[in-house]
């Protein structure tokens, strides 16, 4: 009689444990998804900021047509991108174009004193930061989720319900990742 109760007790505990682990797996996977959409929100915000920026800058930077056009084009391309690969390539291009624009601005002191431009610049550089922080957060969330799916004993339950590892968001632009080499020669 006792043996039956003990057996039932163990089964019950096991069931509760499985439910608990399953729920935390679902929660972690949702956090990964949420982190992913965060990146999209920030990318969209960057696209929205660019027309304003171009409008403000245009009057000052008459001789920088090429730089401005490349930003506009990169933005159009990034907005039209559909697949994952296209997207990250186009966004990388846009980052590069904006970087060039930032450098070009240095030659226009009048522009740099413009209040409107300054606040736009703060918004833009903050959006760049937000993009990289949301990417960082996405990778953190993926790490938590993957740890849970790989580690014993939760990996058994992850296997039972077919939870698959998520992929990290690697930076496409290799120059962004490179650590500067110090040469003492």
């Amino acid at each position: 009689m006792y043996a039956v109760f003990i057996f039932l007790g163990i089964v019950l505990i096991l069931i509760f444990y499985i439910i608990g682990v399953y729920n935390s797996l679902v929660k972690l996977r949702n956090q990964v998804k949420n982190a992913w959409s965060q990146i999209d929100v920030q990318l969209k915000r960057r696209h929205d900021l660019i027309p304003n920026l171009i409008k403000t800058v245009k009057g000052y930077m008459k001789h920088e047509r090429g730089t401005l056009d490349s930003v506009t084009n990169a933005r159009a391309q990034a907005m039209g991108a559909q697949t994952m690969g296209e997207k990250s390539a186009a966004e990388g291009l846009l980052s590069g174009a904006l970087g060039k624009l930032q450098i070009a601005v240095e030659a226009y002191p009048d522009l740099k004193a413009n209040q409107n431009f300054l606040s736009l610049q703060e918004e833009l550089s903050s959006t760049e930061n937000k993009i990289s922080f949301s990417r960082q957060n996405y990778n953190d969330q993926v790490l938590f989720f993957n740890n849970k799916t790989e580690m014993f004993p939760s990996n058994i339950i992850a296997g039972m319900f077919n939870f698959k590892e998520e992929e990290f968001f690697e930076i496409e632009d290799q120059t962004e990742k490179k650590v500067p080499k110090v040469d003492f020669a």
Partner: peptide, 16 residues
């Protein structure tokens, strides 16, 4: 102080 707001939001994103 727009910058303070931006910085706080950056950290909110980073820390989820």
């Amino acid at each position: 102080h727009p910058q303070l707001f931006n910085v706080v939001e950056e950290m909110r994103i980073a820390s989820n």
